[in-house]
Design a binder for these strands. Structure first.
Length: 734
RNA sequence: GCUCGCGUAGCUCAGAAGGCCUAGAGCGUUCGGUUCACAUCCGAAAGGUCCCUGGUUCAAAUCCAGGCGCGAGCACCA
């Protein structure tokens, strides 16, 4: 055996061997129960980071353990086209490298280039996954934008529509001016911002606002119904002086007004504020749009037309001041502003025609399944979070004005029913003259003619689906549901575990449960295992700008994949964030070195034994008489039981710690030191006891450190050794 | 505002169902050790009112209540 363990050679060699031998591809057997994990597909818009390494390690541990238990084990890998995020990343790249926008390329070319970019990333990610040692079934690898998934995804869309769970409506959506698309509520984050709060004279009132530029869209003034100060105005019209001259507005009373905020009077702008929109609906107010989708004021704003929101705010405030219409300005006001999660641009609430999923009934069913225990959460506390969100769920806007993603499977007869926004975002559509009959056709297959007027002038909805709509169906689409070959679906669905980050519990897990139940009638998985974030040694989020990122490939190159894997598991607890430092990885590398040297020591003693005696035949059932040996085996038996119990309950960190401590601080530090003399005297009992305890540890350590244990196994048991990857997990009773 | 999590050695964290805790590990620190598997090592040591206050209990780091301090999620402010 080499004096030093050479991870670079060994790890590559074993991965190639496992893959070549086909150990990653399960042999389905109707008599056996399957164990299935669908890998959360990493976003193919960059390379894998340490967080990916963490979940790949956890899932690989689960998979390897169950494979060793003899179950039909499938780990299905994949990659996500990641709609908006990839489009943002690629647009930035395009801007930076070629000074071009998506419109410069045109839709077709933009999609082609994005695909090229994505597939290239995907390839790199595959190599990274292999370097980590992920024993997933590459023959079933899936990519969310693979055309074969269009059929089931479109079918789900159509079914939802036919069942009345899908509708198209004018609603207030979150509009990202930079991305030029609607966002779901989940894709919006709030940032605290300090903005001047203007107290504006408004006829008989003074009211406070941070958005004077939306004043042109005001269609009412609101007060709280019980506010004594303003009772006499409720229901009346007031006259006021504004930037565009005199105007009059109705005064309404609404519970949503907080009498304690500002002066207790609110200007109502239904077209540009979510609360005002809701108020407008309650009081049947006119929705008067004054800001367009390009983030600029429109022709209803007179001289302010064409200004950006930011510029118009300054200018209107200035002009109001000049006209003596500002009473005071509070410069210390700070509030939360909605920004696009992906590009951080301030979100503009706008009303537009979009597709929505009616989520309440789907959520109801999802909650019932969880209540019945068909799906369990680990750690359990996330179950509560799940319920809170599901109970308060709002309809899900699934149409995006993006080009990168699944095109919405809706066709319109002529352009009559295309929205203004869609025409704006897709200049080529404006050239079409044919108004058509306006029929809306929702179909899983591309229709040829309009069923109503029989014309062939059908235009597909130019919008794409929210990326989570397709990934929400991942557990069954990847298994061939509603496709030509559904055998995998029949055998492997529902899957066993969904292992993913707690930060996408709502984005993804909840939607998979809702859509899985809706489409297949069954839960998509039985256990949701949620892991935490990987942070740096000080608990900070890793980011390129902070310069504290740990790159998995660099680490693997220097310390080996096994060291990295072990350091991502050791000393962690389920659902909590993991703090990782290079020191920790180094410590685990040292552990690898330790077990390597233990192997060398055992090998040396085996050779010494054989030089002086006959062949050394390890005997797992041999019962030693020596009390040191007996005590060791007794203790070891207890630990084996404990380890198995922890493996079965997904508590991997204690297993890593038990093995670490037993191997190093009991077997090496104490037992080996004790038996050195006996080994010199060719004591079979001592050698066999050491060998059995050590090798069984290697078997149990294999899911954690697969490469080094496989190499040691071969070195100690010879050329014809059965690979550890398919060695049965130790029995508990012996 | 609502909800959840955390607070244990200098640092990062284990300690699930109360007694095997006279509270552990890794890193760091100090001292000693190189022929005998391993300096990526071995031996030893220092270092802790287990956030605070009450309660339950024969017994609390662990359970309960309150407080303080951090972090996260959700809601959202005109």
């Amino acid at each position: 055996m080499d004096k030093v363990y050479k991870h670079q050679e060994v790890e590559k060699k074993w991965y190639a061997f496992w893959e070549k031998e086909g150990f990653f591809t399960p042999k389905t057997d109707p008599k056996k129960k399957p164990y299935t994990i669908i890998m959360p597909p990493p976003n193919a818009n960059g390379y894998l980071h340490i967080g990916h390494a963490a979940f790949l390690t956890l899932e690989d541990i689960m998979i390897r353990y169950h494979r060793m238990k003899g179950e039909v084990t499938l780990w299905l890998p994949g990659a996500d086209h990641a709609g908006i995020l990839t489009q943002v990343v690629f647009e930035r790249k395009l801007e930076k490298e070629e000074h071009k926008s998506r419109f410069d390329l045109g839709r077709e070319e933009f999609v082609r280039r994005s695909m090229e970019f994505t597939l290239k990333n995907k390839e790199v990610m595959e190599r990274q996954m292999k370097a980590i040692g992920a024993s997933c079934d590459w023959s079933r690898e899936s990519f969310t934008l693979d055309p074969k998934f269009n059929k089931p995804i479109y079918q789900t869309f159509k079914n939802l529509y036919d069942d009345g769970f899908l509708y198209r409506d004018f609603r207030m959506i979150n509009w990202c001016v930079r991305c030029s698309t609607a966002l779901s509520d989940l894709e919006v984050v709030y940032k605290e911002k300090k903005d001047p709060l203007y107290y504006i004279k408004y006829g008989p009132f003074v009211l406070a606002t941070v958005r004077p530029e939306t004043k042109f869209g005001d269609t009412a003034v609101a007060v709280h119904p019980q506010d004594r100060r303003y009772q006499k105005y409720i229901g009346k019209e007031i006259k006021a002086e504004g930037l565009l001259g005199k105007f009059s507005l109705k005064v309404i009373a609404d519970q949503a007004v907080d009498p304690k905020f500002g002066t207790g009077v609110v200007k109502v702008t239904p077209a540009h504020d979510p609360d005002d929109f809701a108020m407008g609906q309650r009081h049947h107010l006119e929705v008067k749009q004054v800001i367009d989708f390009d983030g600029r004021l429109n022709n209803k704003t007179g001289p302010y037309k064409g200004m950006t929101v930011e510029a118009a705010r300054k200018k209107t405030a200035e002009d109001l001041k000049k006209k003596g219409l500002i009473e005071k300005i509070d410069f210390n006001y700070s509030h939360n502003v909605a920004v696009c999660e992906r590009c951080q641009t301030i979100v503009e609430p706008l009303v537009s025609l979009q597709w929505f999923i009616k989520t309440k009934p789907l959520a109801q069913r999802a909650m019932e399944s969880v209540k019945k225990g068909e799906i369990k959460f680990k750690p359990e506390r996330f179950e509560k979070n799940f319920f809170i969100w599901m109970e308060n769920i709002r309809d899900w806007c699934i149409s995006r004005q993006l080009w990168w993603g699944h095109r919405i499977p809706v066709w319109y007869c002529g352009k009559k029913n295309l929205s203004q926004l869609q025409l704006l975002m897709n200049p080529e559509l404006t050239k079409i003259k044919d108004e058509g009959c306006g029929e809306i056709i929702v179909s899983a297959k591309t229709p040829q003619t309009c069923p109503k007027c029989l014309k062939t002038n059908l235009i597909q909805d130019p919008d794409t689906l929210d990326t989570w709509f397709s990934s929400g169906q991942w557990p069954y689409t990847t298994l061939g549901f509603a496709q030509d070959d559904g055998r995998d679906f029949e055998y492997f669905y529902p899957t066993s575990v969904m292992e993913t980050g707690y930060e996408i519990l709502f984005f993804w897990v909840a939607r998979m449960i809702m859509l899985g139940l809706y489409s297949t009638g069954k839960v998509p998985f039985k256990l949701v295992y949620l892991h935490g974030l990987v942070r740096d040694a000080f608990g900070q989020k890793m980011s390129k700008s902070k310069g504290n990122v740990i790159d998995p490939l660099t680490v693997i190159d220097e310390y080996g994949a096994d060291s990295l894997r072990m350091s991502l598991v050791y000393g962690t607890s389920v659902g909590s964030d993991v703090k990782l430092s290079e020191k920790k990885i180094e410590a685990m590398r040292n552990f690898g070195n330790k077990i390597w040297n233990m192997a060398r020591f055992i090998k040396m003693n085996m050779e010494f034994f054989e030089k002086n005696n006959k062949k050394f035949n390890p005997d797992i059932n041999y019962l030693p008489k020596n009390s040191d040996d007996k005590n060791l085996l007794k203790k070891f038996k207890m630990l084996t039981k404990l380890i198995t119990k922890n493996m079965d309950t997904y508590r991997f960190a204690p297993v890593a710690e038990i093995l670490y401590n037993f191997l190093w601080h009991e077997l090496a530090d104490i037992y080996i030191e004790k038996v050195k003399e006996r080994l010199k005297n060719n004591d079979y009992e001592a050698l066999n006891t050491l060998y059995q305890a050590y090798m069984t540890c290697m078997v149990m350590l294999h899911p954690f450190m697969p490469h080094i244990t496989e190499e040691i196994n071969k070195k100690l048991t010879g050329e014809n050794a059965k690979p550890l990857i398919i060695t049965p997990w130790p029995k508990n009773e012996r």
